[in-house]
Design a protein around this nucleic acid. Sequence first.
DNA 1: TATATATTTATAAAGATTATAATTTTGTAA
DNA 2: TTACAAAATTATAATCTTTATAAATATATA
Lengths: 155, 155
Amino acid sequence: MKPGSKNGNISDVLIKKNIKPSYQRIKVFEYLLGTDSHPTVEQIYSDLVNEIPTLSKATIYNTLNLFEGAQLARVITIEENETRYDACIEEHGHFKCENCGKIYDFPVNLDNLVSGNGILENFKVNEKNIYFKGICSKCLNNKSNKQEGKNGTGK
Amino acid sequence: MKPGSKNGNISDVLIKKNIKPSYQRIKVFEYLLGTDSHPTVEQIYSDLVNEIPTLSKATIYNTLNLFEGAQLARVITIEENETRYDACIEEHGHFKCENCGKIYDFPVNLDNLVSGNGILENFKVNEKNIYFKGICSKCLNNKSNKQEGKNGTGK
DNA sequence: TATATATTTATAAAGATTATAATTTTGTAA
DNA sequence: TTACAAAATTATAATCTTTATAAATATATA
Ligand SMILES: [Mn+2]
Ligand SMILES: [Mn+2]
Ligand SMILES: [Zn+2]
Ligand SMILES: [Zn+2]
């Protein structure tokens, strides 16, 4: 790796997908890769605007749509009007805690569901999504104690 | 059943959930029970407004939120900004065809996923959702023929 | 019937995403 | 380097979905 190209690997991933590695795109991708919080557009924007004061929210939308199309990121729609993004495109499930709002990953294998299934047998499956809702163990332990603040959505 | 109360059974279901069976609520519930199309708010409204000319879209939203809370209907969020509803609350999966937009049901049992799963073992799971995307068999057969119109979303 | 309560309606407000056009950046060739 | 063209970013307007609010209507009770 050449000196001064610390983001060489990230750039290369974008280039391989025919996406020009602009400063903003690298930063967004880097941000997604560095978190497991499944952030919303708002969260990505408000964090990155500190580093990039001229950043526009439209760029976040453009970039995420670009990544989605190139399958560099995955859209997570657990709640309506709260689109989240995940740079981990390996098959896995999501669990959203209805108390603290945190979204957890969990391992899952859905291949057997498709093969043994009557109707899906003749369908072409391009994308598989699974998510659960409930209360996470941390919140279960705090249940008799003080109420956790909010549910993470601000609603 | 008393004569003139053709919707007695539907009313009773609502009453059992402590929901007063108003004319509008009965019509919305009846509509949901009578379709397997997983309709959007817009579709429910535009169909029912023919029967109920004074109907307001706010009533549809109010009613569906009420049904959701009472677990008489299930929210399906496959695409962002396209919330759909399903009166079938039995556990099942959904498949959305990316070509014709139709949403199919498919049987699925997710209990084994929870029990064998490390992280979920200590969580309280209240709701399970699974949906796939791809191309349905009907569209696969038409693929070399004329292109099917739209993807059903109007986008 | 009179009155209180609940529901529906119409409309405004809020929030998220997309569309548009101007500005800025990047790449290329003279 | 400079000039030009293409692409990306930005700011902002427009659109769309959902929620909030208050007035009007319907329902239940005394
Ligand atoms: Mn994830
Ligand atoms: Mn269904
Ligand atoms: Zn929690
Ligand atoms: Zn199809």
